[in-house]
């Protein structure tokens, strides 16, 4: 069962910008990270997923239907980037308005407001709210009616670390119930463990697509091992001269080793009784930079 499917989708604005030949598939419970610089086509892709734009070529389906059909829309929750609401309405009035538009009972709307931690501010006008509260209201309206596809554009902007963790925990609960999530984000650190798949866009084109481990294999970036408090640093340097090696502090070393040799090297290093060892697999950020550089789309 496919929740979201884009097959060879192309869309061009009048000024030539747009997206070209995008293909994506998302199954129940899966979370896709849509990454890319400003103007890479992330928002255009989202608008195509929502049926707000009609592709000039290719097809978009949500649960097998056109994305702009009422059936699809009832099953989609969408949080726009920099979401904003009617300043003269209170939180409760806002969420109830959107609930009525989606055919969700008002009582359920008020509960949704509680679950995002806005119960205390429900009767205050949105005008007086902070950016983080607005963002949580945006999330609440996206969660209305238990959507089967959640599309979140920069959901963590304005959220503090605790609220961010809450958000991902809530997303995990939803995914356990089969909701698929598309996450657009600039903030890369910390999100890779939540993503099943990553799609990197640049200039409207798909640079690379796959799970994080797949991207690691494809990029073949070295794993970084950092050891500290070595009694005989020269001996270690001699032994591992094949690896790229850097000196850190007085008794520390940093080694770039091939993914396949990671465990061998670690075992051998431990024989030298270091005080501490840190292992860094290439992060999502490293992968992103690598593929963007390869694509020639990253500014120096």
């Amino acid at each position: 069962m496919t929740i979201l499917n884009l097959s060879s989708v192309t869309f061009r604005y009048g000024n030539g910008a747009g997206v070209e030949n995008l293909s994506l598939t998302l199954g129940p419970g899966e979370m896709l990270g849509l990454l890319g610089h400003n103007g890479a086509g992330k928002t255009t892709t989202i608008k195509l997923m929502l049926g707000l734009l009609t592709p000039s070529q290719g097809d978009v389906t949500v649960l097998g239907n056109r994305p702009d059909s009422a059936d699809s829309r009832k099953n989609i929750g969408y949080l726009p980037e920099n979401v904003r609401f009617y300043p003269h309405l209170t939180g409760r009035e806002s969420i109830e308005y959107f609930a009525r538009l989606k055919g969700v009972p008002p009582a359920q709307a008020r509960r949704t407001l509680e679950t995002v931690g806005l119960g205390h501010a429900a009767d205050r006008k949105v005008r007086t709210w902070s950016k983080g509260m607005m963002q949580r209201l945006g999330l609440a309206q996206a969660l209305l009616g238990q959507p089967r596809l959640l599309i979140l554009d920069e959901p963590t902007v304005g959220l503090d670390p605790v609220a961010t963790r809450d958000l991902y925990q809530r997303l995990n609960e939803l995914r356990a119930n089969g909701t698929a999530v598309v996450l657009c984000s600039h903030v890369l650190p910390g999100i890779e463990r939540y993503l099943d798949n990553v799609a990197i866009l640049s200039d409207g084109q798909m640079v690379v697509q796959g799970s994080v481990p797949e991207l690691r294999r494809q990029a073949n970036l070295p794993v970084q091992i950092r050891v500290r408090g070595l009694a005989d640093r020269e001996a270690v340097q001699r032994q591992f001269s094949d690896d790229i090696i850097r000196q850190v502090n007085a008794h520390g070393l940093e080694l770039d080793v091939d993914e396949h040799h990671k465990l061998d090297r670690l075992a051998a290093l431990l024989d030298h009784h270091p005080q501490d060892v840190e292992v860094h697999a290439p992060s999502l950020e490293d992968l992103y930079c690598h593929f963007m550089q390869q694509h020639g789309g990253l500014n120096p």
Binding site: R73, Y78, P80, L101, Q141
Partner: peptide, 8 residues
């Protein structure tokens, strides 16, 4: 933008 993503 938000309204147009709703079922209407």
């Amino acid at each position: 933008l938000l309204l147009l993503a709703y079922p209407l």
